[in-house]
Design a protein around this nucleic acid. Sequence first.
DNA 1: AATAGGTCTGTAAGCGCTTTCACATCATGT
DNA 2: ACATGATGTGAAAGCGCTTACAGACCTATT
Lengths: 343, 343
Amino acid sequence: MATVRTEKRITIDDVAREAEVSAASVSRVVSGKGYVSEETRKRVTAALVRTGYVVNRQARGLAGGRSQVIGLVVPDLDTSYIGAIVRGIDEELSLDSYDLMLYTTHHRKHRESAFASTLTSGLADGLLLVLPSDPAAYLDSFVRRGFPFVLIDQGGFYDRGPSVGATNFQGAYDGTSYLLDLGHTRIGFVTGTLNMGCAVERRRGYRKALEDHSVAIDDALIRIGDFHQPLGYERAAELLALDDPPTAIFASNDDSAFGVMDAVRDRGLRVGDDISVVGFDDVMTASMVHPRLTTVRQPLHEMGRRATRMLLNMIESPESPRERIDLATELVIRESCRRPTGP
Amino acid sequence: MATVRTEKRITIDDVAREAEVSAASVSRVVSGKGYVSEETRKRVTAALVRTGYVVNRQARGLAGGRSQVIGLVVPDLDTSYIGAIVRGIDEELSLDSYDLMLYTTHHRKHRESAFASTLTSGLADGLLLVLPSDPAAYLDSFVRRGFPFVLIDQGGFYDRGPSVGATNFQGAYDGTSYLLDLGHTRIGFVTGTLNMGCAVERRRGYRKALEDHSVAIDDALIRIGDFHQPLGYERAAELLALDDPPTAIFASNDDSAFGVMDAVRDRGLRVGDDISVVGFDDVMTASMVHPRLTTVRQPLHEMGRRATRMLLNMIESPESPRERIDLATELVIRESCRRPTGP
DNA sequence: AATAGGTCTGTAAGCGCTTTCACATCATGT
DNA sequence: ACATGATGTGAAAGCGCTTACAGACCTATT
């Protein structure tokens, strides 16, 4: 007898034979479009169950249908920042049973464009880009070719495509204002990577808040960071070593803020009591460190969802208008800030 | 004039026409298999460049070739633990220009099997599963159908498939021994999720080390955790509230260890000086907390790479033997442990 | 000189699906 | 009674690619 090696794959024709209808009818039942009589639907559904049919996505994609795949390009997977966004994307996608193709650029720009061409050549129906390093030429080509895409947290550099972001300026403004209202006047600021729009916006928010509260801007208090903990530590250490050190430090994201907290502690000071610290993002860890970090919450999860919903809409109805939305940030007050102790 | 809406997609026939050869020849040049004369190769290559052709993966997949996609199923993306593994996978994959299809189960088991059927129905050439919650029936069906897959860090529950993991037992043994050698005899242990093989193995390593050092096992010192920070905090708090509290605590992973550290601090004790803490994994943050965490390093990145390489081999040569490998862990000594202070 | 085999190429047959299209059938409005 | 349109169905044409397959042309080997 022949050895049973790989069970034969069940195709739409098998189902059609089983239900004694044409493959076209099966297709109509499965995809839910076109006219099908109640009778036929029943027969096919039964046959579907009996055979255990699973549609072949490749064939479907090829035949002109959607591939039901969307591509996601992210810089990396190391931060829970990305994790939160992806969770949102994921949720929304599974609602419409789309699949996710993941591309990690690791900040190497050439990979972004390489992915772009693969994905648009039939593999994906649309593209989500998180923090694209420098919204390069390929985005324009998407626009030209009418290929659906949405930028997430791209922060203002590329303005010809739909995007969802957060109110970075306002968030930083709020965080800084909170510190000012507490009575701080020497507030250090650790920026993010300044070739990213959001980082620039946050610095702008910080500046504007000081201005509005008639506090002079001291450039010595503004240090350039990179959104990561080690450099946050470094910058905070520099800030604290100043002759006239700040009484509070606002970091451009939580990761940096954790670095700042470490630096404060390593200098023998207490976070909160001696030096107030504010972060940005509100990643999960922010509420787990001690003292729990006061931070500007970005609705990352929601950003993921909204971007996905937007993309899915664009795919459904290509004529829908391209939006650009910024979700509201929110100051989350915890225990890392106090009134400054008088000299 | 007709409006230019979407630039016509360039197919293999376009290239063939441009190079004045048959589509078959183009295919042979692109895929690099079959005989092609130098002359033809040149012509085609030139045409390829001129037209900017990108192969349509769906069509290639359908036509019987590989889809050049591998599926990855992970529980979530919140931890840098997964991030490290994915980075390894990613690296190895891009070497062979494979693409990654990502599925996040969020620990919901039914999603695992749903993904399994989608992926195996033509979408992916192989599957990588990180920490499959409970290596269920679908794995058996993979085996039966000869569908290539590799389990990552699955830790011993399913033994019919190839896998790559780490020496969990030995790692825990080493960590515990280190603490014992330092002079600790009352060593608390916070387990991971015990329905996971690795968690069980680590507990076993802890026990064996005590045994080998002739230290009695006190079950009151073993608390069940879940690999996450909050429960780590909880369990450590319980441990420290004991009448005869431990002088050291070994957490089954770094995340829990961070919780333990917080609990120690919140009880007014110093990590290291008063209570030694050891973790497992060596995620990036472990070297960033204060004091820096002594931990058992798992080569996560390497695990990702090896698993991927293994999978790719299986895809290439289906007859290659199925391996099960465990990569060595390594104790990384930092500042979170001291000799116990005598009473 | 005859045969064997390697090299190279194009034709054509699908892969599994969706989607016209043409053709039935049926309820409705006049 | 008839046109009208909505409803339902299957045959067949691809989607863009890979891969036998067959034929043509070359060496080598007997």
